[in-house]
Nucleic acid binder design. Structure first.
Length: 472
RNA sequence: GGAGAGGUGGCCGAGCGGUUGAAGGCGCCUGACUCGAAAUCAGGUUUACCCGUGAGGGUAACGGGGGUUCGAAUCCCUCCCUCUCCGCCA
């Protein structure tokens, strides 16, 4: 959610921001509704004030007369009734006028809120303008000693690389046929060392964040209320990406709570403190979770259909930072959070690069986003010799959101003081992948495959694999 | 699933139709006293929105929503949640 006050002051900034993000939004309409709303609120407030005053002044008298009326008959009763009618005329008139205004507000408010929820956070001025992921800009690359993705795999390693599909098949690490039988397309079953490796990388990533970087390990619900989805900014724009547990329908109860399966642990982590006023001293909050993520992948039909790349269910270690409302601090955390991932990838000898996302690739909630892509030798165009060229594939995404999420989640802290002192301010939030698997198994298996078809397990993962150094 | 109890401010806890944004206590803040601290005393201490350059003014909120009433934290309806006991499951 953006700040309506800022929008009032500088509507052009938000109009331009939305345009840069390719998100259609009617700013004029919002301004008009906002003006109307404020005017109606003013009128309503005035009427209520008057009525409240009346209730205090003449109300008790009405009560007294009503009491008298009970014991009276005939002409006397009529006289009292007349007095009562006169006294009641004013509040009744105020009441109906107020009701009229409330009715109009009841129409305007939902529309205004609905629109406000759709206004994207304008990209930061230093984010390059672009239409889509095509226009993202490479910031940096890292390669392990002895391997450079810009040269062919075979020339450096002495054999033709297999794709992860082939590796997984040959080493029996996954069973796609049965996965699909069980759960439909984009489903899979990890088997044997495939499952073991999956658990190993997740656990390694969690431990890395907890014991090396000092993040608090936290479990979160993956089945959440709509509020949490709206609050974190995944709704309304991404509604079609989420699986719905339709409890309303199932229970035949129109008031029941529907629940949604989260597509990232970010929802749960950010939701932990929704509605709270945090003590300034607890900031920055640094949370890490590992959670199962569910994505419908609507609109991705036909894309990456084979293998472990684009799937409906996976597990992800996610890091979230909730800090004070300070741009410099927020930017510093962004860098740090990317730094953790770079360190992690280096420790596993995975070639990777950082991509500055352009405005068109940011999504509604981000002011800035950097993707981290890992080198996958089995991806990319297949050459004449039947060997793929290799390509970078997105494995991480680091977002900086200012107070966009916290405003929606109503997550604040009291700046500069204890309870009863200092202003309440919306926190800033950031998030970044630490590691998502099984997608991450793709670069892991493909980069560490050997000529004999085996796969070397990078040193840091071995303790999580029963000390084994090799698969196959 | 069956039976009961309950949801009030940062916390505890009163109020059960009117002057209560809400007694009292705890906590916290400011000041006085003190060399300093403790104790004591005095004052202060919710949030959101609207109007106003400002001082300030107004409205709303006692789990959510709706209703009755001139007036609701207090009455009615409904939903949600928490707790206790029983059953069921892990």
């Amino acid at each position: 959610m953006i700040d309506i006050k800022l929008l009032r002051e500088n509507p052009a900034r938000f109009a331009l921001g939305a345009k840069a993000k390719n998100i259609p939004i009617d700013i004029e309409r919002i301004l008009k509704l906002d003006t109307e709303r404020r005017q109606l609120q003013g009128e309503g407030d005035k009427l209520r004030a008057e009525q409240g005053k009346f209730a205090k002044e003449s109300g008790p008298q009405i009560g007294k007369l009503k009491g008298q009326l009970k014991g009276l008959k005939g002409a006397e009763a009529e006289a009292v009734q007349k007095q009562l009618d006169e006294l009641s005329a004013k509040p009744l008139a105020l009441k109906s006028a107020e009701a009229e205004i409330s009715k109009r507000l009841a129409v305007i408010d939902p529309e205004l809120n609905q629109l406000l929820l759709q206004v994207p956070l304008p990209p930061d001025s230093d984010v390059p303008v672009g239409a889509s992921a095509e226009d993202n800009i490479e910031i940096s690359r890292w390669n392990p000693d002895g391997f450079d993705p810009s040269k062919s795999f075979e020339s450096q390693r002495g054999f033709k690389p297999k794709t992860h599909l082939e590796i997984v098949r040959d080493l029996k690490l996954a069973d796609f046929e049965r996965g699909v039988k069980l759960a439909g397309s984009r489903s899979y079953i990890l088997t044997g060392d495939g499952m073991a490796l999956h658990l190993a990388v997740l656990r390694y990533a969690v431990d890395f964040m907890v014991y090396k970087q000092g993040f608090s390990p936290t479990s979160v619900p993956v089945l959440v209320k709509e509020e949490a989805m709206v609050g974190t900014g995944f709704f309304p724009a991404g509604r079609e990406q989420a699986y719905l547990i339709d409890e309303t329908h199932r229970a035949g109860d129109p008031e029941g709570y529907d629940l949604y399966l989260t597509g990232t642990g970010e929802v749960g982590l950010m939701g932990v403190h929704m509605g709270e006023i945090l003590d300034e001293s607890v900031l920055p909050l640094r949370y890490v979770t590992v959670s199962t993520c569910f994505r419908r992948e609507a609109g991705a039909a036909g894309k990456d259909t084979a293998g472990l790349y684009r799937i409906h269910q996976f597990d992800k270690v996610e890091q979230v930072v909730i800090c004070k409302a300070d741009e410099a601090e927020s930017r510093a955390w962004h860098k740090k959070m990317m730094g953790y991932v770079q360190e992690l990838l280096r420790s596993l000898s995975i070639p990777h690069r950082l991509l500055q996302c352009c405005t068109g690739d940011l999504g509604p909630k981000n002011a800035d986003m950097v993707d981290i892509e890992s080198w996958m030798p089995g991806r990319g165009e297949v050459g004449k010799d039947g060997v793929p060229s290799g390509a970078y594939g997105e494995t991480h995404s680091a977002s900086r959101l200012y107070d966009y999420q916290c405003r929606r989640l109503n997550m604040r802290y009291r700046a500069g003081g204890a309870v009863g002192k200092g202003d309440t301010v919306f926190c800033h939030s950031l998030n970044n992948t630490v590691l998502a698997s099984p997608r991450f198994l793709i670069p892991l298996l493909e980069n560490h495959q050997n000529a004999d078809g085996s796969v070397t397990i990078p040193e840091p993962l071995r303790p999580y694999m029963g000390g084994k150094s090799k698969i196959g």
